Simulated assay, not measured.
Amino acid sequence: MKIVKAECLHADGGLRVCSYLKVSTDEGLVGWSEYYDSFSPARLDPVIQDLARTAIGMDPRQVGRISETLLATTRLASGGLAQQAVAAIENACLDIAGKAAGLPVHVLLGGPLRDRVPVYWTHCGSYRVARESFFTGQLGLPPIRSMDDLVGVAREAVAQGYRAVKTNPVFFENGKPHFFNGGFRVAPGFLDRSMTDRQLGQLHEQMSAYREAVGPDVGLMLDLSFSQRTEGALRIARRLEPLQLAWLEFDTPDAQALAHIRQNARVPIASLESLHGIHEYRPFLAAQTVDTCIIDPMWNGVWQSARIAAFADAFETTMAPHNPVGDLGSLMSVHLCAAAGNLRMMELRVDEAPWIRSFLTHPPQVVGGEMLVPQTPGWGTGIDEDALRAHPVKPA
Rank of each mutant, 00 (worst) to 15 (best):
C8M: 02
Y20D: 02
S19N: 12
Y36T: 13
L51H: 03
H10R: 15
A42L: 14
V17F: 09
V47F: 11
S38C: 09
V63I: 12
T25K: 05
F39L: 11
E34A: 06
L15P: 04
L21H: 04
L51W: 01
D45K: 13
R16H: 14
Q49T: 01
A11I: 01
S33D: 09
K22Q: 12
G28C: 14
S33K: 09
L15I: 09
P60G: 07
L51Q: 02
A52D: 03
A42S: 14
D12W: 11
A42C: 06
Y36I: 14
D45E: 14
Y35C: 11
G13Q: 13
Y36C: 07
R16S: 14
A52G: 03
P46F: 10
V23S: 00
D26P: 13
Y35L: 15
A52Y: 02
V63L: 10
P41E: 02
R61S: 10
R53E: 15
L44P: 03
D59P: 02
V47T: 12
V63C: 12
V47N: 09
T25D: 03
C8S: 04
D26G: 09
G31P: 04
R61F: 07
I66W: 11
Y36H: 13
A42F: 14
H10V: 06
V63P: 11
W32N: 00
D50F: 09
Y35K: 09
R53K: 13
D26A: 10
L29D: 05
K22Y: 05
I56F: 05
G64E: 15
T54E: 10
G57T: 13
M58S: 14
